[in-house]
Each structure stands twice: as structure tokens, then as C-alpha cells.
Computed example of a mutant assay.
Amino acid sequence: MASANTPKKRRTDNQSSEETPIYVPNPHLEKMKEDVLYHFALGTGTHDFPALFGDVKFVCVGGSPSRMKAFITYIAEKLGIGNSGCDFPNICAGSDRYAMYKAGPVLAASHGMGIPSIAIMLHELIKLLYHSKCSNVTIIRIGTSGGIGLEPGSVVITKQSVDATFKPQFEQVILGKSVIRNTDLDEELAKDLLECSKELDQFNTIIGNTMCTLDFYEGQARLDGAICLYTEEEKLQYLQAAYKAGIRNIEMESSVFAAMCNLCGIRGAVVCVTLLNRLEGDQITTPHDVLSEYQKRPQKLVEHLIMKQLGKK
């Protein structure tokens, strides 16, 4: 296998008819008699992965278990799977870390909040797809974010994830050494999603850079945390500089998501709705019913893409 830092080339539209299996840059997996996906409560010795997941073509991941269950119920209805009000069981019910649901070729999984949580989930998810002998898989993160210079309710399709210093990279310490990984996301997939938004014509959607931070409060220049040792003027200068750098929203998972998709040759996208304009404030005061409608927007966009690519639109 290739070095752990060597990205696998992603499938392009010209290769869409080819079977592109999941690639895992880890030669040690082949030596293991059994692979226990501990945080999913699944294992190759106890579950038939190809039978359970071999038909998966789309994986949608998001922070909240309830949001992912709502998404799988929504996509199942569109696909005509199950009866009205059908309950989809949590495949990872043996664990309280993550939740996972499946409807036909679509898998949905929660990832919690922040880089460490989504990284653990992605390691096990990618191995699940690999053991299941899946091919031509697209993974999309759908979620919420803070916008920069955008009206609340706008949807941002991430072009590139940048860190809190605006660098387009994901840095991780491995064996005591700093490793820098690429955070570009699939350009053609982003364009496909933008085209779907035009076809829906229901809400403002753009392609822009996303800042991925290690913290919700100080790391995102908020004034309302327990600790804040900078001024409001300094906060605004920082966020305005981010806007000038092409950053249109802030969240906490996109960098490692992009890096891992790149390393494993998986088409990946990040689609997040903005809940507020951070240039105008820090706290979310929008009514709950409005926020609920906002949170459905990435789901609607991704559902449209999935149905279109499955030839059902």
C-alpha cells in the first residue's frame, strides 16, 4: 500500500462507470484476523459487512444523532423505502458514541462535535466501507455553522477548509512529528451541489472557504465565552480578515474530513447552513421553528443530489 501521507486519486466524472473501491492506506489491516469497530459496536468477526453495507453509495454524516435519523427518514421517503412513519433502527445501538441509520444505498451517521470526534468516526466509517467492499462512494457532511458576511439561512458548500490562521491545511502530530495534510474538497461534487441548489431555487447557496476551528468560543473569536481576553474591535478585525481571505463560514469538523477523504480517494463535500452572521453577533437568538427550517436546507440539497445521481430526478 501507499504511504499513509500519499493521497489516493479520486474518481472523476470521466471514470464514473468504473468501480472504484474504498482505499485504506494502512497495510496493518490485512494482518488482522478481526477488526473491531469499537465506537460503532460492530466487528468483522460478528457482522457480515458486505451483506449489511455492500450496496452503500452515499454516506451523509452530521453532528447530531437526531438530525441524522431525521435525514434517513426523509431520504427513505423520497426513495420509496418503508411505509409512512417507518422507524429506522440505530445500527450502532450497542454504543452510546455514535448513531447510524441505513435506507437502501444511503447510510447516515452522527459524528459529534469537533475534530477528534469526527476523526474517530471517520476512521471506523472508512474501514466499514472497505470491509463491506463498497465502491464509488460519496461522503457528505451536512451541518450548521456560523456565517461571515452572509444572511442567516444561507448554505455554504465548502471549496477548501482552512485553519484558524487561514491556511488551507490540516495539521496533526503523529509519532511526535507534525504532519500537514491537504484540505481541498472535490471540485466537481461542489459544482454538482451548486447546480442542484439552482434547480431547487429555495435558498441562497454559495461555494466558499470554510474555517475549521478547535474551539467554539475563543477559537471562533466569540465574546460570550467564560474566557475572553480580546476586544470587540479585535474580534471584528479578525472576522473581516477572514472574509477577505474568502472564508464564508466557521465550523469544527471540515479540515480532518477533507484530509481523510483525500487520503482515501473518496469524493467528499461539506454542506452547512449558516445560523447567524458572525459580523453582527455571537449568540443565536433566532426562533426555534426558523432554526429547524434552516437545518433542513442542507438535507434538501443533498437529497436532491442523491436522487439526481441515482437517476430518480
Results as ranks from 00 to 15, higher is better:
residue 207 I to S: 09
residue 204 N to C: 11
residue 203 F to N: 04
residue 183 T to V: 10
residue 185 L to M: 07
residue 180 I to N: 01
residue 208 G to Q: 04
residue 192 D to P: 15
residue 185 L to I: 11
residue 178 S to P: 09
residue 184 D to G: 13
residue 186 D to H: 02
residue 180 I to D: 00
residue 205 T to M: 01
residue 183 T to N: 11
residue 197 S to P: 01
residue 204 N to Q: 14
residue 210 T to R: 00
residue 182 N to C: 11
residue 208 G to N: 06
residue 181 R to M: 12
residue 187 E to R: 02
residue 188 E to G: 05
residue 182 N to F: 02
residue 194 L to M: 12
residue 205 T to R: 04
residue 204 N to A: 10
residue 203 F to V: 03
residue 191 K to N: 14
residue 212 C to D: 04
residue 196 C to F: 01
residue 185 L to Y: 03
residue 190 A to V: 06
residue 201 D to P: 00
residue 180 I to A: 06
residue 208 G to I: 01
residue 208 G to K: 02
residue 204 N to H: 14
residue 180 I to S: 14
residue 193 L to V: 10
residue 191 K to A: 13
residue 206 I to P: 02
residue 201 D to C: 01
residue 201 D to H: 08
residue 184 D to A: 05
residue 212 C to I: 12
residue 189 L to I: 15
residue 209 N to Y: 06
residue 198 K to L: 07
residue 197 S to F: 07
residue 182 N to V: 00
residue 205 T to F: 01
residue 183 T to D: 07
residue 189 L to M: 12
residue 207 I to H: 10
residue 190 A to C: 12
residue 190 A to D: 13
residue 198 K to Y: 14
residue 188 E to R: 02
residue 186 D to E: 09
residue 177 K to P: 04
residue 185 L to V: 09
residue 211 M to E: 12
residue 192 D to E: 14
residue 212 C to W: 07
residue 179 V to S: 11
residue 207 I to P: 15
residue 204 N to G: 07
residue 185 L to T: 14
residue 186 D to Y: 06
residue 190 A to R: 01
residue 206 I to V: 14
residue 206 I to G: 00
residue 210 T to H: 02
residue 196 C to Y: 02
residue 206 I to Q: 02
residue 191 K to P: 01
residue 180 I to M: 05
residue 191 K to M: 11
residue 196 C to L: 05
residue 198 K to I: 06
residue 177 K to T: 12
residue 205 T to I: 00
residue 207 I to F: 09
residue 212 C to E: 05
residue 193 L to N: 07
residue 191 K to V: 15
residue 193 L to M: 08
residue 212 C to L: 05
residue 177 K to R: 08
residue 178 S to Y: 01
residue 200 L to F: 05
residue 188 E to D: 15
residue 177 K to F: 01
residue 192 D to K: 09
residue 211 M to Y: 11
residue 209 N to M: 03
residue 209 N to P: 07
residue 199 E to V: 11
residue 180 I to Q: 05
residue 182 N to R: 01
residue 186 D to W: 00
residue 188 E to N: 07
residue 193 L to A: 03
residue 194 L to G: 08
residue 197 S to I: 09
residue 195 E to L: 11
residue 177 K to Y: 03
residue 192 D to W: 04
residue 197 S to D: 09
residue 184 D to F: 00
residue 190 A to Y: 04
residue 178 S to L: 10
residue 189 L to P: 15
residue 177 K to V: 08
residue 183 T to K: 01
residue 181 R to L: 13
residue 183 T to L: 08
residue 197 S to E: 12
residue 186 D to P: 03
residue 210 T to C: 08
